[in-house]
Structures are given as C-alpha cells and as structure tokens.
Design a protein around this nucleic acid. Structure first.
Lengths: 150, 150
DNA sequence: CTACGTGGGTTGCATGAAGCAACTCAACGT
DNA sequence: ACGTTGAGTTGCTTCATGCAACCCACGTAG
C-alpha cells in the first residue's frame, strides 16, 4: 500500500480508488475483460514487472475483483478471471475509454470500438438518469447527502 | 512521471490513465466537481502533501483538464477550475462512485447521492447504447478494431 | 513603518514503491 | 536425465511520496 490510504475517507470514489486506483491495476482489469487470464500473458501484453503484477493480482483477489483458479490440477498452474464485482467495473472502463477516445486519441483514431450485439450497431455509450431516461450531465445534477453521510 | 509510462500503448484507456490514473489525481478532479478551487483547500480536504499536490495540479493543467486562473490581480493568488475536457470526466467519476456505492460501501450507506434537476428524483445512472437506447452490459458487447487499430 | 497573517507554493530529507534481471521450483515432455 | 514451461521470488537500484520547515509577495493591524 502507499503511505497514505484512501480507505478511511467517507467517499465511495476514494474507496473505489483504494482498490483499482493504483498504477497498472485498471490496465490489468481491462485485459481481464479482453480475456487475458494467465500470469505470463499479462506480463507480455502490459510490460509490467513480475513482482508488481504479483502484488496487483493479490490485491485484486483480496478485494474480490478477480478470482484465482487452478486450471491444471497436478501442475501448479493458475489463472485469473473476473468476479461479478469485477465485471461490474465495465461501465467505469467504458466511460474512461470513451473519454480517452474523445479527448486524447481523437475521433477517427479509436484503437477499438464496441458493437452492440442486440442492435447490431457499432456504437457509443450514453449515461442516462435511471428514473426518467434522459441523458445526465454534471450541471443538471445536484449533489445531496446520502444515508452514509457524516 | 513513473518509470513506466502508458503513453505509447495503443489504447485509449491507457492514454486516459496516463493523465488521471496517478494516485491522488482523480480525487483532485472529484473535489473540482464539488467546487474546490484553492490550493490550501485541496490540501486540507484531501490530506495530500503540498509537493505532490503541486505536481498533480501542474500535470492536470498541462493536460488541459483544469485551468489555473488568477483570482486576485496584484496578489499572486490562483485557483483551479475544470475545463470542458475536465468536465467531460463526469461520467467516469460517476460510474466509479456508483461501483463503490454498490460493491464497497453498500446500499443504504452512500455518502452522497445525486438528484436530477430535470426530473426531480434522487437517482442513479444507467449506461445505454447510443443507437438503440437499451442498457449496455459487457456480455452484450463485442470488441471490434477501430480506425486507429494497429 | 514594522510586524503579522495569508495564500500558494519550494526545499530537504527519510522511507516506500517500481523496474529489472536473475533465480527458484515443481511438474511434464522427450 | 535433461530441458521446458508457468508462476512466481529475491535482491538491488532508482524514482515517488510524505512530512515538516521554509520562502516570498502582498495586505492589513498596531
């Protein structure tokens, strides 16, 4: 862990970053979504050093974001797959990717795109209000105290 | 910068994390959304050390996520406000907060909630397909090469 | 007009994290 | 019996972070 932890901040963003906010961690999760499972494959794709990868995988397992499973009994071979909690990170990864597409790599230079199977279109995402279904933007939102406020 | 940069990876997630993926950085952006503008206020609210805050603010300004503005001519007083690129991070912050609410702090313990002014409800967000308007989840999406693929 | 307070930083030092290469270790395969 | 493979450890060096103290220009109080 770093010298200063976010764990005691009363904020879900800080709590989330405590788990997935370290350098390399979200790229590991990204690769999990792309189907990478094995230690040496992470090392090769990411260019991460092996000791740091060990550290990050252990923390993600401890946080129940991924699961370590033996895939070859007898041999000591393990792989890593997303848990439901890990798969729930898909909107975070997606909004982050689209922000990068729009503001850094630029339209027309997207390294990857997504196709929505149900409708068949290569598409983007939109964040909408769960109540009224209208698009949500920051200036149309008011922050209010929640039940866990202190 | 860290010893290993993500900048040369052909992935918008890596590009995005190069800017906002360092320890403390996204908490600084979060506080910007909450209206914090001044150096000492960031220090006090976050508990961040002053040299690290200087480093992160400089990088965010260089990346055009926030802007450094004099707010008192004559005195050397500056504050920091989000640019359009910075405000575009709202969906990232929001999906991250909702993941933390759901999987870490737990329902009923949310430190803050959001109210949608247009419809008046305390609400959550939902990520939908921009084409068909249906909710998007990972397993209903196929990753395809984009124009910037290599 | 000297002293103190305020805001926004720097500087120096001690400690923790990251990068790198080499090493380990227990099955297999040949 | 020997090398290969996968999944890590270990040791060393260098970079990043935390912390406290300091700086500096302006404004204000005495």
């Amino acid at each position: 862990m770093r010298k200063v932890s976010f764990a005691d901040m009363n904020c879900s963003i800080a709590q989330a970053l405590e788990i997935i906010g370290e350098w390399w961690t979200l790229l590991i999760v990204r690769d999990c979504f792309l189907g990478i499972r094995r230690f040496d494959d992470f090392v090769e794709r990411l260019g991460i050093s092996r000791n740091v990868l060990t550290d990050r995988l252990d923390k993600l397992v401890a946080a129940d974001v991924i699961e370590r499973r033996p895939y070859d009994e007898g041999r000591l071979r393990y792989d890593y797959v997303l848990t439901p909690k890990g798969r729930a990170l898909w909107p975070v990864i997606t909004t982050l990717r689209e922000w990068g597409d729009e503001w850094i790599t630029g339209e027309g230079n997207e390294p990857i795109l997504i196709e929505h199977r149900s409708c068949g279109n290569v598409t983007h995402t939109r964040l909408v209000c769960d109540c009224c279904g209208e698009p949500l933007v920051a200036r149309d939102v008011r922050v209010v105290d929640g039940p866990g406020s202190r």
